[in-house]
Amino acid sequence: MVTGHGRIEHIVRVWLPVAFFLVLALFPFYWMAITSIKPNAELYNKNVMPLIVRAPTLKHYVDLLTKSSFLLWTWNTMLVAAVATAISLVLGVMLAYPLARMRFAGAGLIAMTVAAIYLVPQPLLFIPLADVINRLGLGNTLTSVILTYPTMLVPFCAWLLLGYFKTVPKELEEAARIDGASRLQTMRQVFLPLCTPGFISAGIFAFTLSQNEFLYALIFLTKTTVRTVPVGVISELIRGDVFYWGQLMAGALLGSIPVALIYSFFVEHYVAGLTTGSVKG
């Protein structure tokens, strides 16, 4: 394969398609990056090629970081996403484990109900949810979204985990039971530690959904200090009918960095957890 012919074939078979997808996926990011370092005069100039920048500036970044509460929003987003994900995983396990391992009357019904919950459209829920949040006295607190995000995350986590749980061999649990461990002990100390890849994949999925959520955050969080990145950026960098494009793009790039980092650490497990569950399940 080290012959010249092989190398060309390698490029055609491997790099051509991969490059195609890379360009497709990354071009908008290039656009965001280039937009975020263009001075306004260049940004709005339709006569120059839009893919290059002549006089790059960090002004938009400086403005974003000093004149808006972007860092606070990032912190809020991460906190909300992490806690909502943790809650969703715990609740997801509590649903998925019995469904995966136990026989009991009503299991089918529960599984159906949980599956049906994905289908409930968000726009139907937000007014009554606002009422619940308000009665709990949680308006304008991060807790309001920490509590409401799991409504859409728990079913997904339960579903993903259910698939994963079914692939874990039962022998160890059976051995623990024979040795007299209670079901709770068996679950916590024998079973769950075997399921880390499943948690990582469900967790990452939940985390991504939480940090991207827009509607609940828009309605429940109206103070600058409690906003998340998507809502904060949209509310404060769009003023009337004027978009602060450079800052918006800087925000988009900076906003995706934390999650990108998390992904690059976990992507291996993420993929493993997702596939074990579904391929064999």
Partner: peptide, 22 residues
């Protein structure tokens, strides 16, 4: 003084009027 984004004012007032607080 609470500021909401352009276009989301109706949503925000609806929520306040429906829940009676905010």
């Amino acid at each position: 003084y609470e500021v909401t984004s352009v276009g989301s004012l109706p949503t925000r007032i609806s929520t306040i009027a429906e829940t009676g607080s905010g």
